[in-house]
Every structure is written in structure tokens, then in C-alpha cells.
Design a protein around this nucleic acid. Structure first.
Lengths: 148, 148
DNA sequence: ATTGCTATTGCAAATCGTTTGCAACTGGTG
DNA sequence: CACCAGTTGCAAACGATTTGCAATAGCAAT
């Protein structure tokens, strides 16, 4: 079992703080969804979140709406693993959540990768093309040890 | 207008050669779709292809099927620009089509990028995690000169 | 606690990109 | 030029995600 390398996961009180004052409410559903994400170190789709909710089950539409909200206030980050399904990961309290994944083509196991595209090269690409505010989306695909 | 850096675009006769002998047929629709791709240096969605067909218009389903076919025989490459829409680009005759894109967040202009994630680093990532056959998907996003 | 206003939820219907079943059609080989 | 497997168009099916709306529930002020 891989120990992920991110900073500590935010506690629920943080949700409270981030929502209050934005005319947003702290609902049972939102706490439950956050709770699920806190216990999963990997990107989860809306359906996976729902399955993990157990007794706290709530409507899929609510999960979609909650994940969008959490993404907007920067508590979760959206990842696109290339299969047309949006997945979300809880952000750490201090880092910016920027990291990548290595996904098994066969069993879809996900490993977090902290290596990143060289910053200088990215800046050079931006400069060469006159672009500003350049970021990147990067994911790796391969065969995991067990699926070889 | 950016001159793209790939090798020459395949001529139609190549389609002929690649399809013949595979119990596949050279139809007007496939030629038309290939023709459209040959005139567009950037990734195109199925709908964009259809719009560009003009008088040679054909069913969307046929376009989806043709693009899958062309992808399977290696004549086009599929790109995922992160908006949930599959896009395809014609492959050059000699290169493997591996390259990346820099997409404007605002106007969606696309520039081709030939820089790539460092091979050694990719191999190291593979080794470290026991994965084999590792490849990557990489796209850049930013603001183009005009949209700044 | 109770009230009242507004954000939020559940449900169902609507969207959107993509896929598929099927009968009609058409390359291209013999 | 006839035949047959590969193709096409059309419409229906799909899966992920979004949205309209009436019912419900935070929460701030009473």
C-alpha cells in the first residue's frame, strides 16, 4: 500500500470556515462527501463517491453539485484520467494539489507521481509562443506490476 | 498562421494501400473525411469534421466509425484536450505522431508543441513503480497572445 | 425555541458526446 | 455483371453530467 506524499488532509472544521461567509451552507451531504474523500487517497468519480457514502447516501446530482462547489472553493481538485469520467481528489491544506498519476492500462490502479514537467521548459514553451499563465495536464499510463 | 512541424501529410493513395488487403473498403465518406483532416493541421472533433465536409456531408455515426477505423490502422491519432470531446489529427507518414498541444483557455486556439517529457525521467518513474510500457498524455493550457 | 428567508436537495427530465442495431446499399473480386 | 461482406444512414440506446422545480433544511435574527 503506497503512502501518499501529500500534506495532511483537511479536517471538517475547515469546510466550515471556507463556506461560512459565502452564503453557503454546511449540509450533511457535503460533510459526508468530504468525509469519503478524506478516506480515499486517490481520484474518485461521482459514482465511486456515492458507493462509498453507505448510509449517508445522497442523490447523484447532489454529489455532482457538491464536487463542483468544493472544486470552486479549492478544496478538491479535478483530474481527467482519460476515460471520460471526472475524478476528484481532496487537496492538502498547504500544497496547491499539483501532481500527476500513473495509471495501469489494465486494472486502472492509480499511483501518485510527484515528478513534474520541468518548469524552465514550460516557461520556454510559453515564451516561444507568446502565451501567458501556462500550466499543464500530465498523466502516465502503463502496466502495473501485477498486470504484466 | 503557424506552419506545423510534422512530416508531410499522407496522400490518399496511402489510404488505399493501408485498407486494401484488410478486407476494408475505400469509400467516398472515408476519402472525404481524410481529405478534411489533411487540410486541418489541428485536432478536430467529429462535429468539426462534419461541418468541414460541406457537400460531401455524411452521417455523424459514420464519422465516428471512420475515425475509429483510421485510428486503429494508425492513420490518425486521438487527442484528449480535456473538455470531454475526442479530437483526431492526421498522422505524418514517418513519425509516430507523438507530440503535444498548447491550448488557449479562452479561444481554444491550438499550437503544436514538439517538446516532450524527458524520456529518462519517464523511465525512472516506470522503474520506481514497477510499471512497464509507460507512456504519457501531456497538454499545456494558457492564454494566447491575442486573448491576454 | 420559533420564524423566515434562501441555499440546497431529491427526483425526473433534459443534454451531450458517443455507440449500436438493423435494413438498405455498395465496393471490388471473381 | 453478379454476389457477398463490409458500410452507411437513421433512429434508438447509452452513460456521464446538468438542470428545472417543488419540497426541505441551514442558520441568522427574533
Amino acid at each position: 500500500m503506497k503512502k501518499h506524499t501529500h500534506s495532511d488532509r483537511p479536517q471538517l472544521p475547515e469546510l466550515t470556515d471556507r463556506l461560512r461567509g459565502k452564503s453557503r451552507r454546511i449540509t450533511g451531504q457535503r460533510e459526508a462527501i468530504l468525509g469519503v474523500l478524506r478516506h480515499h487517497p486517490h481520484p474518485m468519480s461521482s459514482k465511486e463517491v456515492q458507493r462509498s457514502l453507505g448510509s449517508e447516501d445522497c442523490d447523484l446530482a447532489t454529489i455532482y453539485r457538491s464536487l463542483h462547489l468544493l472544486e470552486n472553493i479549492g478544496m478538491v481538485k479535478r483530474f481527467d484520467l482519460g476515460d471520460g469520467i471526472a475524478r476528484y481528489e481532496l487537496m492538502g491544506t498547504d500544497d496547491d494539489g499539483h501532481h500527476h498519476h500513473l495509471i495501469c492500462r489494465r486494472c486502472a490502479e492509480v499511483v501518485e507521481i510527484d515528478d513534474c514537467f520541468p518548469r524552465e521548459l514550460e516557461e520556454e514553451i510559453a515564451r516561444r509562443n507568446g502565451y501567458s499563465g501556462v500550466t499543464h495536464r500530465l498523466e502516465f499510463f502503463g502496466l502495473c506490476p501485477r498486470c504484466r
